[in-house]
Design a protein around this nucleic acid. Sequence first.
DNA 1: CTGTTAGCGCCTTCAC
DNA 2: GTGAAGGCGCTAACAG
Lengths: 344, 344
Amino acid sequence: MTATLKDVAALAGVHPSTVSRVLRKQENLKILESTRKKIFSAVEELNYQPDFTARALRMKKSFTIGLIVPDIGNPFFSRIARTIEQLGFEKDYTVIVCNTDEDQEKENRYVSHLLSRGVDGLIMVPAQGSDKTVRTVKEKGLPLVLIDRVFENIETNAVISNNAEAAFNAIKYLAELGHKKVAFLRGKSNIYTMAKRYKGYHKAVKKFGLVESDSLVVGDGFSFEDGYNSTKELLNCAEPPTALLLTGNLITVGAISAILEKGLSIPEDISVIAFADSIFSPYLVKPLTTISHPLYEIGLKAFNLLLENIESDKVLSTSQIIVNTQFDIRKTTGKVETVLEITQ
Amino acid sequence: MTATLKDVAALAGVHPSTVSRVLRKQENLKILESTRKKIFSAVEELNYQPDFTARALRMKKSFTIGLIVPDIGNPFFSRIARTIEQLGFEKDYTVIVCNTDEDQEKENRYVSHLLSRGVDGLIMVPAQGSDKTVRTVKEKGLPLVLIDRVFENIETNAVISNNAEAAFNAIKYLAELGHKKVAFLRGKSNIYTMAKRYKGYHKAVKKFGLVESDSLVVGDGFSFEDGYNSTKELLNCAEPPTALLLTGNLITVGAISAILEKGLSIPEDISVIAFADSIFSPYLVKPLTTISHPLYEIGLKAFNLLLENIESDKVLSTSQIIVNTQFDIRKTTGKVETVLEITQ
DNA sequence: CTGTTAGCGCCTTCAC
DNA sequence: GTGAAGGCGCTAACAG
């Protein structure tokens, strides 16, 4: 059907290996200008495209990288994915995208699948508790870069955000506004990122003398429902919190929904800060005060780190790159005094 | 390094082809239970994983599909991508994602790249004017499904939304509310989807006797800036429109931004309907009246259609599947009379 | 039921 | 400067 190296060689009247040589464009390679010409015109005529599969098999290099994320439908991941794909394209690497749904089992299957596909490297946002999987990859010597989450007990390349610090600063800001009771919708507590955020939250709560209570740390998922239900419960307390720290796009939407439904106003009745990366954040009911991630930078650094590792012959030492989140104070956060004035 | 079929065979004391046979699990295949056992234990011991590349080369089937979209960072596409990837996973297909940025040249390079990678099929949201590329794919006989956009003069499989109808209904609704002057922010006018929406808009404008003017059809892109600038210009007219029909997430954000900046209220001063698929739509400054797409359904239908074509030996006739958008009337649309009462 | 043989399309070493 | 030979890992056809 499609032309092969052999066909081109036959048409050009040379040996396949010569064609291969010419097309691989080795620099210091001596080829007669005449044969080169014959070959190129044969390539043209047959519209020859090299077979990547065959090349990959022969060279043990697939020019493919695997990208494993919990959910490519989530803008946080999809925008990182976009960057990685684009950079890859420039360097002739192709990206295979996989969704784990935070499911360890699925992730495991993906990893072995990608391994047997012979990817040259892996960028992943590991699911909770998948340290065994990560360790396996590492031991195989496959270049690997983690994004957003790392495991304390495994040394890996990684690009992560300053989550603890970001959460700390958010709470600090709320404390300065006079809030004493701040709840934290933690998402899944056993995920690294969330654990870090909790750490920052907790540290700030202690440091600034806020109310410290397990009942203020709620939720166990990233869905709309999780945000909605958790918030509803919080608001039904005898003394509900005056501020919320939220950790995800959907959770945020759920929480806002619950607040509005209860007839409360933001920030008069309750302040809200969210870890969120939506372009819509500034245009919500009240422009949302957010902590957002440098998505392009994350993608860029992850890709470059991976590429370094792929293209180096020796094993490089691992590096953890920390990128800074951005804190945008908008209209969902306000002083607590305001609340009192209004309700009195 | 990693174990091969040969290694397994050697360890099990059988021939490689036998191992291959056993592992391919052909149904009506007679293998001695004893050899089967030997082989499985060897597989286990060596932790053997078949090499996909070799298999693909040999079988001329890669179990890979290409997904070409303008921008995977856009939730519209990423959520479709997610569905496709997940369905693919269940059927052992892997998905390669490509971003064209609406650039025809890039798209072309992606297509030939995917072709030389031997993908089994292609799902794409073609860029404007890339009918030549699409035709090429079709002529190669590669299974192909278009999403969201088709070319009038090429018969292809496709899953598209009822864009003209959706735009028509949106304008009809605005007309019923008393609006006479409705602007259309068209995105890129030469993109199929946008052309269709324009058609619906135009038809409704004529049918319901609204103001018909080229100056009401504006914009030439999908960016925030495009939405922002176009809206700003519209609002600076002597007699600005009382309603806007918007065609994209970023455009919407830009338009809202321009409206608010001008100190106008939605919907009192101006009504807004947007083609938008963000989870945040219901929670914007004013909950946004939207036309949204059934993203899961689009992904599902596209994947199934592609798979049918991949797995069938004969060439199937093409089918165009039309899915229905959803019209959610929220709070950004109101009667024109209201405006008069307030401003008088 | 299992071994043998051949080859997918390409690249790389070794000749000449 | 170019041809010949061999093999990447796997599967399919044919033997036996």
